[in-house]
């Protein structure tokens, strides 16, 4: 790790800590919230937390691979949001509510 002053200069560690915080926030949302929309947003949050660490490492290591990876993650995130929202809409149409407990009806 570079020998920089943690309080005065923004370095890799700041990004990683931000990323970890965002990830944990997202995970908490996924695990605890009952509203599907909020859960989907939390998943976005987790994905973007990962994106932050990708970009940070990419910059720090002078390697564009991480940034390319971000594009993939964003694509996946968009697709996942589309599918997730479609299911959410279907659930809503059927039960007039978008509580996660209705997903239990999908159980075989």
């Amino acid at each position: 790790m570079q020998s920089t002053n943690f309080l005065t200069e923004v370095g890799l560690n700041h990004y990683l800590i931000l990323s970890a915080l965002l990830f944990v926030t997202g995970m908490t949302g996924v695990l605890l919230k009952r509203n599907i929309i909020v859960m989907l947003m939390s998943i976005e949050l987790m994905l973007n937390a990962v994106n932050i660490s990708f970009v940070a490492f990419s910059k720090y290591l002078n390697n564009v691979d991480g940034q390319i990876m971000v594009f993939f993650v964003m694509t996946i995130a968009a697709a996942e949001a589309a599918v997730g929202l479609a299911i959410a809409v279907t659930i809503f149409k059927r039960f007039k509510e978008i509580n996660i407990k209705f997903f239990e009806h999908l159980r075989g």
Partner: peptide, 14 residues
């Protein structure tokens, strides 16, 4: 084990 509870799955993954 397959309760159908999504959040439980997510928890187990975590």
């Amino acid at each position: 084990l397959q309760t159908g509870n999504l959040q439980q799955y997510a928890m187990l993954i975590g």
